[in-house]
Design a binder for these strands. Structure first.
Lengths: 345, 345
DNA sequence: AGAAAATATTGGATCGATCCAAGAATCTTG
DNA sequence: CAAGATTCTTGGATCGATCCAATATTTTCT
């Protein structure tokens, strides 16, 4: 492989001049520059080796994304909302012309310790120590969907506001009898919380989901209802039986609060199967807007989790590397046709 | 920032020994190794700098993906099938523990010329010259969805077979009156090809889509039909009006061949709106299986474009770097409930 | 204990460029 | 045309590690 040295030799100049011809052309006489360019062309030299350049001044021009711990990269990519988030990050990378490096966090292969990037976006949230390598490497980083402390960049959605908006919407329509499908993180059996059984934070998967639950509780509380009296199913997002269980357990409910769109759609399907008409007999609200919500029949009322926005902001934080930023995004309620006042009687 | 030299000094050994302690521990006495480890810990040294390591032996442990030319990275990620493809690539990266670098192909920022990767997967297909930098850098690469010549790795789906399978399926069910919704690449107005108007390759967007058209033609031909007599709409995949136009223009059709799932679903919706029952009054086949197809009502019969498989194979080709491989994947027909024999009369 | 064998450690060279201060060439100008 | 001002070009040092052959140390064996 030809190196700068070969080019310099062939062009009859020193390597410094050859280097300048490529990296600081304005400092080299046009005539010499062309001579160098010609030599490079003839040798099939492609310009300074990025690897060597890198060592000298350390800028990689890439941002690393570490997907949430429990998922591999491939699984993350399959998740529609993560995917939305990635698009947001990619958008900013596009703007800046930076590469996007997806890092499967395997210690065995280096992971965050050795990835060639200028900064990190941590999608994972489990242990703050997972971000240690980034800190030690003095690379800027941001944690998504978790509060990582006052001295760490973070971007989160206000889950509590989301839960509040969703349930207040239903309360305002006049609903009083609810069912909740909450999110189960990782693997584990579907759980049913009957009315009257108090539910702690463990009743929802991730921090954000626990916040949603708090938001539900708050809105219900304002209406004089206790969330502990609402029948609740906690299941994995992919579990289509959760909808069935929910309708079995809470046949009297007029409104279902779901923590994902797919569960919401599953409820729509199950309701149809039972001859219930949505939204006449049953209202449904989903969480974390994805395109499927608009295409379901009837179109699903959702809370927009602003994943793409989250990605954009996270990326900007890493690229700008200013003072610590702690962003709390406000969700938005998107009212569609799956919610309506409950039927009288 | 501490370097290996500092650690060596502090531990009272030479830099070579310090280096060995990290990179070839088996060659260093346990006692010395610990001394080095302790020094490193005290200095907050994180192990050999990946940047320097890189320069020495050139292995980055990452694979670069260049999305199709007409899309930016963000757009690519939004495309459900591209996303499937990426998952396939990511799966193999997960296995190997390699990073996945997504490269927005902007010349201004280096792009393929300078990306720090060990090989490339080109999703783009427009000009073979786009792969030149990869060839010049002597990095292994593979071109997806295009035949890039005998000496270049490639992975493609057999679009012709796909088109053939889809249309033969409908022919075998007894259909004789078709409508085709083809794919429009990039931007441009929706086009309508009335019966009797011959249609060249430009009647479908990408190479693969043109192949699908050939497959349709072949199956129809075997049944004594001429594809030039089939009414056809060519539209962008997101254009939901295409379904409307199709049913307006070909009210007598009993079967619609669509080149994407989303268009297929749009046809299902539009048919429902017009009071047509699928599959009793109308059969629909989509292309490029995505999960939405199974969840539509009725579930959509599709041809599986094997995007994930394509990604997996592409990645393996790059990692294995053996002799040239030119893979032609065979699509698979997935029969669901959107196809049935046409109604008599 | 001394020689031979096995095992550890070391300095010098190298990967491929960039930076910088100093020297060479060219251009102004009185 | 020589001195001074400009503009180009250059070799040496450097980025942070790894590799290799040579040397130093320890172990084994007679």
């Amino acid at each position: 492989m030809p190196t700068l040295l070969h080019v310099a030799a062939k062009a009859g100049v020193s390597r410094s001049t050859a280097s300048n011809a490529f990296s600081r052309p304005e400092v080299v006489r046009a005539e010499v520059r062309e001579k160098v360019a010609k030599a490079a062309l003839e040798l099939g030299y492609l310009g300074p080796d990025p690897k060597a350049k890198l060592l000298r001044h350390g800028k990689v021009n890439a941002i690393g994304i570490v997907p949430p711990g429990e998922w591999g990269v491939a699984d993350s990519l399959k998740n529609p909302v993560y995917h939305q988030f990635l698009s947001g990050v990619a958008e900013v990378c596009d703007e800046v012309g930076a590469n996007l490096v997806i890092i499967p966090d395997r210690i065995s292969n280096g992971g965050v310790n050795t990835a060639l990037v200028d900064g990190f976006i941590f999608g994972r949230i489990e242990h703050l120590r997972d971000t240690e390598p980034a800190r030690l490497r003095r690379l800027p980083y941001v944690v998504v969907d978790a509060d990582a402390g006052l001295d760490v960049n973070s971007v989160r959605i206000d889950g509590r506001m989301g839960g509040y908006l969703a349930s207040r919407h239903l309360l305002e329509l006049g609903h009083r009898r609810f069912g909740i499908i909450s999110f189960l993180r990782g693997f584990g059996p579907t759980r049913y919380y009957p009315p009257g059984v108090p539910r702690g934070p463990e009743a929802a998967g991730m921090e954000t989901d626990q916040d949603k639950l708090r938001g539900y509780a708050e809105a219900l509380g304002e209406a004089g209802l206790d969330i502990a009296d609402v029948p609740m199913v906690q299941a994995q997002p992919g579990d289509r039986d959760a909808a069935k269980m929910m309708l079995d357990m809470a046949p009297q409910a007029t409104a279902i609060l779901s923590m994902t769109v797919m569960q919401g759609i599953a409820v729509l399907d199950e309701a149809r199967r039972r001859g219930l008409s949505v939204p006449r007999d049953l209202s449904v609200v989903g969480f974390n807007e994805i395109p499927e919500a608009a295409n379901s029949i009837p179109a699903l009322t959702t809370v927009d989790g602003k994943f793409a926005e989250k990605g954009r902001i996270a990326a900007r934080i890493v690229f700008d590397s200013g003072p610590v930023r702690r962003e709390l995004l406000q969700p938005r309620l998107i009212v569609r046709s799956s919610t309506a006042p409950p039927q009288k009687g």
